[in-house]
Design a protein around this nucleic acid. Sequence first.
DNA 1: GAATAATTTTAGGTTTGTCTAAATTTTTAT
DNA 2: ATAAAAATTTAGACAAACCTAAAATTATTC
Lengths: 219, 219
Amino acid sequence: MLSYTEENYLKAIFHLSGDGEKEVFTNNISEMLETKPASVTDMLKKLAQKDLVHYKKYQGVTLTKIGRSNALKVIRKHRLWEVFLVEKLKFNWDEVHEIAEQLEHIQSNLLIERLDEFLGHPAYDPHGDPIPTVDGKIKVKKMVLLCDVREGFSGEVACLKETSSSFLKYLDKIGIKIGTNIRVNHIMEFDASMDVNIGNSKVTSNISNEVSKNIFVTL
Amino acid sequence: MLSYTEENYLKAIFHLSGDGEKEVFTNNISEMLETKPASVTDMLKKLAQKDLVHYKKYQGVTLTKIGRSNALKVIRKHRLWEVFLVEKLKFNWDEVHEIAEQLEHIQSNLLIERLDEFLGHPAYDPHGDPIPTVDGKIKVKKMVLLCDVREGFSGEVACLKETSSSFLKYLDKIGIKIGTNIRVNHIMEFDASMDVNIGNSKVTSNISNEVSKNIFVTL
DNA sequence: GAATAATTTTAGGTTTGTCTAAATTTTTAT
DNA sequence: ATAAAAATTTAGACAAACCTAAAATTATTC
């Protein structure tokens, strides 16, 4: 049985490693979890001892099989609870993160499977992130960042890279949600901002590169 | 902001005091929370310092206004989550306690008010216990223990004193749930067991005094 | 290839909530 | 009323997860 804190470390390592691809370093984790590097070192030793991470002094960490499977379990719970909050309790997509951060640590396999069923086995959370299956598989969609879409092409919003409340509120305001179609009409050479059509709207909106770098679309 | 542990102590004191009526003693708390009396003393000092309990060495504790209100908030959350688990996720009434013990500590007023709304503002949890309102009021039903019902009279099951899994499973088996009508036909002088009719059944069942002492009915 | 900078680890300390063992207070029983 | 029993508190320790400050390692730069 992992502690609340151990689960958070595993989750952070998973995310920072790009879903388990690369190595992760002490300072990255310390920044993400808002703790000091010294504390991270302490915890990495502990996780290594429990066989949850591969860790060599000064050389960064990666998750073991067991560590990865535990991280995915927590992420599954987090995303299912987010769906519940938005679909059933009518929360806005920018309000659910903090609550799901707590709910993801509730221990009960039966609970999470019943919740999954109750929600109709959703594949994606409200921000478009895939929900891992019970056995730790993730459906990866073929997506590109909106900023990489060429002029004249269009795509469907699939997932967000950034999910801060302020970003989500901005997207709400300009009418972008998961599934919205976006057509790229023109890209400014100067600042890489884009003139786009959002949804069925005939009106052209301009979105900054900072924004288009944080939206994934399927073509 | 109270810790998980502090909330559990307040809740335990509330329950042990008979909803805030009597004083509670160190050993009672220690037994309920499965900790040693010395640990309880430590915590009582801390709670007293935070003005959550009235505490005098060797003389027992009672909750302050603030302590009581916090205890009721936790109990409200616990019981609302129990309703959710039974009504929405199809849990059996004997399976929900442990999960609700965890869920009751999730911090978010908005969450609990949305949940309350989602569930249709229930007044009682699956075991018949009243759900405190946001402002800490509890609806007290006029109830008597089934063992105090006289021969020839009948009552409706309103609430259970004991809510252990084994007791709830036994009640399931003999067909007793909240709302079931029970008619007392005969009381054995020897062991105070009762011959009763459960629901609309014409068959007479015999239930022990141990059982009838743990069922509250309204007449 | 040194010297400096950045990163990471070690050493030692804090807080929260727990424990054991010993001391104190209260209650009960003779 | 006093001795024995029961309940409670104090004293001192421990584990988890964090901290600061100093030391060690790795990376970068001239």
